Amino acid sequence: MAIKSIEINNLLVFGQHDNSTFQLDFCDGINVIIGENGVGKTTLLKMLYAAMQWSEGKMNPLKHFFSVSENGSSVLKNVDNSMEPGRFSVTDGEHRITHSISDIETSSSDGWGKMNIQSVFIPSTEMLSHSNGFLAMNQKYHMPFDGTQVDIIVNASLPETREVPAAMEGILKKISDAIGGTVTLEDDTFYVIKKDGHKIEFSLEAEGLRKLGLLWKLIRNGLLESGSALLWDEPEANLNPELYPLVAEILLELEKNGVQIFVATHSYNFAKYLEIRRDKNEQVMFHNLYKRFSKSGMIFSNSAFRMEDITPNHIMIADMKLLDEVYDL
């Protein structure tokens, strides 16, 4: 079951001074979220992830998915510091969950708790290198990590499934060829087992290859199958640009096999690969978040199935400026 839309009122950067509602409609395939820094791309992903987690009965409060200060206070503030409690709603077209933020966090849902949308959030920060003893320490001490960073270690640490769906075998092979091996967990530490038999601790592998290795492990653990959702914050970060086409192809393969995908990116090249590598049966939709009036702080959006149809497209503008400078030289 795919997520169809989200509505946000007066929450974090989505504080609308004219009391209007921020709304974004999604496609069933790959949703690419672009925009400048500070327009709420990661925040949007975390709200969607929270809603999907709640569909599985994991009712962690929204602040669980955001960093908190050392004294434990929440970052969930209204951008205009008004007294009106912020809220957001997510729907799949038939069911809806609405979460309201107040002094006491409450949520109401209509059949949402039985949806069971299996979801995985890959944060921009690489986490598997910190796995040794991390979960035990996180339970005992206050650590500066949010729920998405903890969850990815938990998901990667799950046991592998007995059988791999035939549709996923090709994807696993592509990733294995790129990293030169497979990923395993031994004594609370992740390793890359190279094809020549060498075992390399995850922290010693190149970070770009670690991202691919994490994706391999998630698929091998059976977490990305038909009907599930993948949320990935800045997949291009620390990734060799030569690997952009491979990651784009992997995401398109996952979409073809029934995985709904949400990615936030600053890379025009990576986003464009998703557009030009798709076929007529693969859905890729671009969602642009931007501030129309800098003084108001209001966030707006527009969506299209082609990068060129989005305006203002800041990541495209940045690339055009670079090309202009090269031409002038």
Rank of each mutant, 00 (worst) to 15 (best):
L215G: 09
I6K: 11
S129I: 06
F88G: 04
M316R: 15
A229Y: 05
A304E: 00
G222Q: 02
L11V: 13
S124D: 10
T161C: 00
F121E: 00
F26C: 07
L223V: 08
A304K: 07
E169T: 12
V79W: 15
K291L: 13
V75N: 14
V154E: 09
L45C: 12
Q23N: 15
A50I: 10
N116F: 15
L12F: 05
Q16V: 03
P245E: 06
R278D: 07
G113P: 03
C27L: 10
Q53T: 05
R87A: 14
W216K: 08
E242V: 15
G29M: 04
Y273E: 12
F121Q: 09
L76V: 06
S5K: 14
L158H: 06
G38P: 04
D92V: 12
K174Y: 04
P123V: 09
I250E: 02
G180P: 02
A136E: 07
V32S: 09
V150F: 00
G111P: 03
Q118L: 13
E325W: 07
I179G: 12
P165N: 01
N221F: 03
L224I: 04
D18S: 11
N31C: 05
L322D: 01
I200E: 07
L323P: 04
V79H: 15
A136C: 01
I117Y: 00
F134Q: 02
N78K: 15
N238W: 14
D92S: 13
R306G: 05
T148E: 00
I276M: 06
L158F: 04
I193T: 11
T265G: 08
I276V: 10
K140R: 14
I315P: 10
F202R: 11
Y191Q: 11
E126G: 04
K174L: 13
I250H: 02
S100Q: 15
G180V: 01
G15A: 15
F22P: 01
S119A: 07
F262D: 00
V75W: 12
W112H: 01
T43D: 07
E282I: 03
E7R: 14
T98S: 11
N60P: 01
E253K: 10
Q118S: 15
I299R: 00
E236Y: 08
S294T: 14
